[in-house]
Amino acid sequence: MPQPKMRFIPGVVPNAGTLSFSFEGNEIPARPGETVASALMRAGVPVLRRTRIENQPRGYFCGMGICWECAVFVEGTGVVRSCGEPARPGMVVRLAEAEV
């Protein structure tokens, strides 16, 4: 069953233009300045990392940089909190796994 997506609140005007990055090999569109977590949630991707021991799905949780549940792995950068990481064109992102 597809996960219901997030959408922009009516009246919120994001920056014009679109960029895209890849997540687990899928192309994800994003607005300039938008965070990786925001773009993924709008694309209906709720699972952002998998746990080291049990391979459990985890996603956006605290939204303020404390919990690290939204961690993703960015090629060339490493593990980042997707809720605070602006998307960059061509960024290669995958689920964070054993790295967290």
Partner: peptide, 23 residues
């Protein structure tokens, strides 16, 4: 721990920091 379970702060930041609302 399921994705889709979020904290209240995370919820407020969806709206305030990302401008998002769930469908």
């Amino acid at each position: 721990t399921l994705p889709g379970v979020i904290s209240a702060g995370g919820c407020l930041n969806l709206a305030k920091a990302h401008g998002l609302v769930p469908e």
